[in-house]
Design a protein around this nucleic acid. Structure first.
Lengths: 87, 87
DNA sequence: TCAAAATATTGTAATATATGGATAAATAGA
DNA sequence: TCTATTTATCCATATATTACAATATTTTGA
């Protein structure tokens, strides 16, 4: 059952409307947290927590640039799944 | 944001180890509830509830055969996503 | 009609997830 | 060093999900 748990963790990380929106955006272009915040219109701490869920699963990765952080999607499976959902 | 909610509902329906296992099995062969039960080794009501979550999302569909019910996967996207997870 | 078998539904307690304010940490520039 | 900016973390509360026993429903066959 272990394999199913790992897979379900990945799906769970993606299975939230805000996180799906973040991922869709990040697939188009990598993006800074403050930009996402403006785009999503939800509190900063909420954005940060959603990002940390995606990061913990290895779906996105941060790159520090001075005081800002730029995230991008690094998981190919996540990209493929988003594409399937979009069809 | 509506589209993201719809998509996240589908992912949430799939994002559980038992439901992933059910789906993997059903992709191989359609199957009766009592068979799944034997296979999963969890209470009947629990199996039934997982099936109803997948059914509500239109991922699987039942076919009544006498007193038994045979389920199969009817959502192509779900199949594709499972395949991606399996790679 | 009655009983047995298969499945669904309901009630509820335990657990997990989500939200947002408050606060902390890191960095750059004055 | 002090301040402003950006991001992360912590905490409490609200909401959602999960599990399973108990019960109901449906169907078949005696």
């Amino acid at each position: 059952m272990k394999g199913y748990e790992v897979k379900s963790e990945m799906l769970k990380a993606m299975a939230h409307p805000v996180r799906l929106k973040i991922l869709s955006g990040l697939i188009e272009n990598e993006c800074y947290v403050n930009e996402m915040q403006d785009n999503l219109n939800i509190p900063q701490s909420t954005v940060s927590q959603h990002l940390s869920i995606l990061k913990r699963q290895g779906i996105i990765a941060p790159r520090k640039e001075g005081v800002r952080t730029c995230y991008k999607v690094v998981d190919k499976k996540a990209i493929k799944m988003i594409n399937i959902l979009d069809k």
